[in-house]
Amino acid sequence: MSIDLQTVKKIASLSRISVTDAEAEAMVPELNNILGWVEQLGEVDVSGVEPMTAVIPNKLRLREDAVTDGDVRDKVLANAPQAEHGFFAVPKVIE
């Protein structure tokens, strides 16, 4: 599978990274090089193999239902590029 300029632009858009045409063009061979290399995995016989789930055998723990956190608005908003009236502010969204 080889990707073209249009695909690179689509991935960039999906990744929310704006790229210039020149940047996108430079990425085409770069990404193809890497993807071409990882595609060697296709030759591995994986019949009957389950995809790995836990790296080290371990069970998912569940916590008790208790309010132990929150009520830290100052901490939550402390690093916000724009915070007003206790909210984060973003450019107007039209739904």
Partner: peptide, 26 residues
């Protein structure tokens, strides 16, 4: 990020990501 986005995107997930997790198990 772009490689990661691509290998998870519709139509490629199984060929890349699922395959990789299987090889990882091996």
């Amino acid at each position: 990020i772009m490689i990661g986005t691509y290998v998870l995107s519709a139509g490629f997930y199984d060929a890349y990501y699922t395959q990789a997790q299987k090889v990882r198990a091996l």
